[in-house]
Structures are given as C-alpha cells and as structure tokens.
C-alpha cells in the first residue's frame, strides 16, 4: 500500500473510498429521513377538499412516507457495507476533499461569481470569473496566462453581447454603475 494517496492509482483510490461513501450515505440518509419526517408532519396541515378524497397533502405524504422507507433501507445497506470494508485502506474525508479540490474551488468561484454579478454586472463578473477559473485550473504564467486573459475578454464580453443583443435575454447590468 502506498502511503501517499496522490500516488495511488485511480481504481485503488476509488475502491478505498468505499468506506467513506458508506459513512456519508448513512449520515446523508439519516438527515434526509429526519427532513422528510418533518415535511410529512407539515403536509398533514395542508387543506383537504370536499370534491375529492385526496386533497393537497395526501400525494406529498405518500411520496415522503415512501422516501423515508427507502432512506432506512439505504441506511441498513450502508451499515452492512461499513462493517465489511477495511478501515485501514480507506481515505479520510479530508483526503477525499483534497483530491477533489479543483472541483470544489471551481464551484466556490462560481458562487463568488453569482454573488458579485448583481453589483458589477454580467459582463464584468463573467470576465473576472473566466480569468479566475482558468487561473485556478493552471493557467498561471506566460503564454497560457495570456491565452486565458484573451479568452476571458472575448467570451466575457462576447457572451454578454450574444445573449443580450442576439437572443434578447436580459442580464444584470450591475448596480455599481
């Protein structure tokens, strides 16, 4: 077994995340089951109708009730998986997130983009976002950074022109100017 998880080949890495997956499934389904039970109770307050036997709340309650049964079944399955898998070979949650840091960084950049857009407008926000993500994904210096900058300007402004002027989709102009 290799100590450095970055060096471990992809199939081994995937296999060794089984335990983490089982644990995550267990927690995720427990949380969902709790949420669905809460919604199930809330759906009981929805009005019924004199015209039909079911009313507004019955269908959601049917779905939510069945969902809870599935959550419990997946939880049982995950607990079995948890017992079978080897805890030593597993990657920890921290390692799992680190291995996927670029994906999470991209999603984080996308969130910042959405937060900035109402203020600085679609065109400017897109330009900065395109530059930032290409930088995150490795366009750090020299020719590649130059290409990234050109792409940011061309697509940031170009997509704005295309969608707002050709396809007539109204995009946020920005509150700051």
């Amino acid at each position: 077994m290799n100590d450095n998880p970055e060096m471990v080949s992809r199939p081994v890495r995937e296999a060794s995340s089984e335990r983490g997956k089982a644990l995550a499934n267990l927690i995720f389904n427990a949380a969902l089951a709790a949420l669905f039970v809460g919604l199930f109770i809330q759906a009981g307050d929805l009005p019924s109708s004199v015209w039909e036997p079911l009313g507004a709340g019955s269908f959601p309650r049917l779905i939510l009730g069945t969902l809870v049964i599935f959550n419990l079944a997946i939880m049982v399955q995950s607990m079995t998986a948890l017992r079978v898998t080897d805890s030593v070979a597993s990657v920890g949650a921290k390692q799992w997130f680190l291995q996927r840091r670029l994906a999470f960084a991209t999603l984080a950049a996308f969130s910042v983009y959405a937060l900035l857009m109402p203020w600085i407008g679609f065109a400017m926000a897109s330009l900065l976002f395109l530059l930032a993500v290409q930088f995150i994904l490795g366009a750090r210096r020299g020719r590649r950074l130059l290409i990234a900058a050109i792409i940011a300007v061309v697509f940031g402004l170009g997509l704005h022109m295309l969608f707002s002027h050709v396809f007539l989709i109204s995009l946020p102009p920005g509150r700051l100017w």
């Binding site: 679609f122 395109l130 993500v133 997509l159 989709i169 946020p172």
Partner: peptide
C-alpha cells in the same frame, strides 16, 4: 478542459437567468 469548463459555466449562468431574470435562480 481548463478553457471549456469556465466558458460553459458562464453559459449555465445565462441559462438560469433567462427564465425569470432573478439572481436567486443563480
């Protein structure tokens, strides 16, 4: 992919804004 992914994400943002022009959809 380092070029494709951010450009397509910008298109996704346009798609979400197109229906109601609400930033909450984003």
């Amino acid at each position: 992919k380092s070029i494709i992914v951010p450009v397509v994400l910008v298109c996704c943002a346009v798609g979400a804004l197109a229906l109601n022009n609400r930033v909450t959809d984003l």
